Simulated scan of single mutants.
Amino acid sequence: MGFGIKLEVWGDYALFTRPEMKVERVSYDVITPSAARGLIEAIYWKPAIKWVIDKIHVYNKIQFTNIRRNEVSGKISKSNAKALMDGTGTVDFINTNELRQQRAALVLKDVRYIIEAHFEMTGRAGEEDTVEKHYNIALRRMRTGQCYHTPCFGCREFPANFKLIEEDIKPSYLGEQDLGFMLYDMDFSDTENIFPVFFRAKMINGVIDLKNIEKVG
């Protein structure tokens, strides 16, 4: 198993929003690498490590359903939030009663994946931060079901169940499917110029292999 992990995740609903849909939310066909990373970080994350998704195994048939969700039509501006953090602004809030809207969403249902991932040490690692230390802590938390906050499938109202897989992964289903361009992750290398990174997702025999993919900024 090395210093990688295999995590099975499943749930009733999932919503991995396509960024090109501006108003009504429409999910990608499968979990995105950034959503998979966020799910693992909900279980174990430290500034000293960075999780990298290697493979996504899709086990259940891809199924969609329509739901209606309550959302708000506004958001707190970046300048107001920064002023509050600096102590120079006034308290700002969103009145959900006044700004509530009902919007349709095309979501996934009955999802189950196995995520293969590993972590890399970052520049914020200290002398006491070793690969073995963080690996063993991550394994313990995944075995016992511990998490910092409830992992979710894209939205907090769609919680994810999880368990550590410590045996060989069974194959899901045969066939090849081109899922088109999908969000890989956000590039935070320049905090003044954060931008999305995409890749061409191809699922072969139920597996999306994310190693050596061509990324498009």
Rank of each mutant, 00 (worst) to 15 (best):
N80E: 12
N80L: 12
A81W: 02
A81R: 11
A81G: 02
A83Q: 09
A83P: 04
A83H: 08
A83W: 08
M85A: 12
D86S: 08
D86C: 04
T88C: 07
G89S: 07
V91M: 10
D92T: 14
D92G: 08
D92R: 11
I94T: 10
I94E: 05
N95R: 08
N95E: 00
N95G: 03
T96H: 12
T96M: 14
N97P: 02
E98Y: 12
E98G: 12
E98K: 15
L99Q: 13
Q101G: 13
Q101A: 15
Q101D: 13
Q102E: 15
R103M: 10
A104W: 11
A104S: 14
A105P: 06
L106G: 04
V107E: 04
L108T: 00
L108W: 04
L108I: 02
L108Y: 00
V111S: 03
V111G: 00
V111C: 05
V111K: 04
V111E: 04
V111M: 03
R112Q: 10
Y113S: 08
I114S: 00
I114F: 04
I114Q: 02
I114A: 07
I114K: 01
I115A: 04
A117Y: 08
A117H: 03
H118N: 13
F119V: 09
F119A: 04
F119W: 05
M121H: 05
T122K: 06
T122F: 05
G123M: 03
G123F: 00
A125F: 01
G126C: 05
E127H: 06
E127Y: 09
E128T: 10
E128F: 01
D129C: 01
T130G: 00
V131I: 09
V131Q: 01
V131M: 05
E132F: 03
K133W: 01
H134I: 03
Y135D: 09
N136T: 13
N136C: 09
I137M: 00
A138H: 07
A138W: 03
L139A: 04
R141L: 14
M142A: 07
R143M: 10
R143C: 05
R143I: 09
T144E: 13
T144A: 11
G145K: 05
Q146G: 09
Q146P: 04
Q146R: 14
Y148N: 11
H149W: 12
T150V: 13
T150Q: 12
P151Q: 00
P151L: 00
F153E: 05
F153Q: 09
F153G: 10
G154F: 01
G154C: 07
R156F: 10
R156D: 12
E157W: 11
P159D: 07
N161Q: 14
F162D: 00
